[in-house]
């Protein structure tokens, strides 16, 4: 795939080409309890909220429901708990414009409106699938429910990590996060991957002579491998202990070296393997399995 090709496609393809047309909307006077039931029944994770005249006035997600549940406020009307103002797109907007909106804001679904009426819904997953189809990329069919065609793009990318470069530290994790978001993964998978990636990257920056960070996406999950060129960990079991750190004072003053990095990784991933040879280097292999296909919003808005 070449980037230029994808870029020009994004300009040519329109939102209406890839949006989901059948959208469940939530009347603004439902309680959060009713919203919870509705989202559950329809097996979706979010929906636009509409007023008496069917005009969009907000958007509500399972996250809002969870929040209300936690706060014991499920009896309140959705109108006071939904997110506003709602960012929308139109059927004739280009995909590039929609992608810019996804990048700019922190959400995973974009209502498509004509006038004030909701005519569709767009998720990053929709865009990835459509672009992949158009580009005839190597797509792996996921074992999916009968109602949908789940697809995950397989890819791998390697990022160099420089030793001692605190200025750039975190850049690799940010780049990985963006890639996973573009792939349409669920926020939970992204959060786990990001915590593990950040800690592993910081470890390489602080302790190693530099190395590389590889991220590989498969239909089963995300595999991240941090490989450095030494000096190696003397006692891996000890390094895994919470609070154990060999970081120097100046690093600790910056808020690192609390001995929490590896324990944080362990809590975030499904499998962690560390192999280390003194004088040669360390390899940290981290795997996050997809529980339900891993794609964000896959069930959302597809009925």
């Amino acid at each position: 795939m070449n980037n230029h090709e994808v870029g020009s496609l994004q300009e040519k393809l329109l939102v209406k080409d890839m949006m989901t047309c059948q959208v469940v909307t939530v009347p603004h006077d439902l309680t959060m309890e009713q919203v919870k039931a509705l989202l559950g029944d329809m097996a979706i994770t979010g929906a636009p909220v509409v007023d008496d005249k069917g005009r969009i006035c907000g958007i509500v997600s399972m996250f809002d429901v969870l929040k209300a549940l936690e706060e014991n406020l499920l009896s309140l009307p959705v109108a006071g708990r939904m997110s506003t103002p709602v960012i929308v797109t139109t059927p004739d907007s280009t995909v590039a414009e929609a992608i810019a909106l996804f990048r700019q804001h922190r959400f995973n679904r974009l209502p498509v409106v004509d006038g004030e009426r909701v005519v569709g819904m767009l998720t990053p997953g929709d865009i990835v699938r459509k672009l992949a189809n158009v580009l005839k990329l190597d797509l792996v069919e996921e074992a999916a429910g009968p109602q949908e065609n789940r697809t995950i793009l397989q890819w791998a990318e390697e990022f160099p990590v420089a030793a001692g470069e605190f200025g750039q530290a975190g850049e690799v994790s940010i780049a990985i996060k963006k890639k996973l978001q573009e792939a349409g993964l669920s926020p939970l998978v992204i959060k786990k991957a990001v915590i593990a990636a950040y800690e592993a990257e910081m470890n390489m920056v602080i302790h190693s002579h530099g190395g590389a960070f590889e991220v590989r996406m498969t239909p089963e999950g995300v595999l991240m491998t941090a490989r450095d060129q030494g000096p190696g960990i003397e006692d891996v079991a000890k390094a895994m202990e919470e609070g154990f750190s060999t970081a120097p004072q100046n690093i600790r003053r910056m808020g690192f070296g609390a001995g929490m990095g590896l324990p944080n990784i362990k809590r975030s991933v499904d499998s962690l393997e560390i192999t280390s040879r003194i004088g040669q280097g360390t390899e940290v292999k981290m795997v996050i399995h997809f529980q339900d296909g891993g794609l964000n919003e896959n069930k959302t808005d597809h009925q």
Binding site: A169, G170, S173, Y198, M202, N264
Partner: peptide, 25 residues
């Protein structure tokens, strides 16, 4: 930072006295 990474979450506001690039990361 590791504590913050483990405990803070999306849409939280973070109070800190750290002042370097990694705070933004």
């Amino acid at each position: 930072l590791s504590q913050v990474v483990a405990r803070a979450d999306r849409d939280f506001i973070w109070i800190t006295i750290q002042n370097h690039l990694n705070v933004i990361a």
